[in-house]
Simulated scan of single mutants.
Amino acid sequence: MVGAEDPPGSTIPPRVLDQLAGGGDWISSWWTVAVALALAGLVVLWAVRRHRADRWSWPLWVVTALGVAFTLGIAANVIVGYVPNVAAARVSLASWGIGSPPPPLEHGSAEARSGGAGSGRVEAVHVPAPAADRMPGSSLTWIYTPPGYEAGSTRYPVVYLVHGSPGAGGDWFAAGNVPHAMDVLLENHLVEPMIVVGMDVNGTGPSAEDTECLDSTTGGSQVETYISETVIPWVDARYRTADDWRHRAIGGFSSGGFCALDQGLRHPELYGAILALDTTGDPGTGGQAMLATQAQWDQHDVTTYAKTVPLPHPVALFVDIAGANHGQPRADLTSIAADLRARGEDVVVREEQGLDHTLNFARQAIPYGLVFASAHLADKS
Rank of each mutant, 00 (worst) to 15 (best):
S28R: 07
R363S: 13
A378L: 04
L214G: 03
A94P: 03
A117G: 13
G281A: 08
W234Y: 13
D346P: 01
R363G: 10
T280H: 01
T358S: 13
N325I: 05
H180S: 11
G118E: 13
A175L: 04
I232N: 03
A295S: 12
A237D: 15
G264C: 08
G81V: 10
D183F: 00
A94G: 05
A89D: 09
V35K: 02
S216P: 00
Y368L: 13
A76I: 11
Q263V: 06
A338N: 11
E345I: 04
T285Q: 12
L39R: 00
Q328I: 12
I321H: 04
D379N: 14
P130L: 10
G67V: 10
A365T: 08
H300L: 06
L333W: 03
F361L: 08
R341A: 15
S100D: 15
S114L: 13
T241M: 04
R155G: 05
M199S: 10
A365I: 05
I227F: 12
T11A: 12
S381T: 15
H300G: 09
W30R: 12
K307E: 15
A174D: 12
H300D: 09
A338T: 13
S114E: 15
R121L: 13
G99Y: 06
P312R: 07
D171P: 03
F318P: 06
H126G: 11
H163Q: 14
M199G: 03
A249K: 01
W26S: 15
L370I: 04
V16H: 10
S207P: 02
E106N: 14
I79E: 13
G287C: 05
D171I: 07
L275T: 11
T32S: 15
I227W: 00
D262A: 12
A365G: 08
W96E: 15
T293L: 02
T230I: 11
R238E: 08
Q222I: 04
S114N: 10
D133Y: 04
Q288T: 11
V309W: 00
A38L: 14
G220F: 01
A342R: 07
V348G: 09
D200V: 09
R240S: 12
E224S: 11
L45E: 13
L359I: 08
V201H: 05
M194R: 04
V302E: 01
E150Q: 09
G148D: 07
P102M: 13
S255G: 05
N325K: 02
L214R: 02
S165N: 14
W297P: 07
V223P: 02
T225M: 06
L270V: 06
T217F: 00
M1V: 13
L161Y: 00
P233R: 06
Y226Q: 05
L37R: 00
A65F: 03
A342V: 04
N85E: 14
G167R: 03
D25E: 07
T241A: 11
P128K: 12
T32M: 10
R246V: 09
R134L: 12
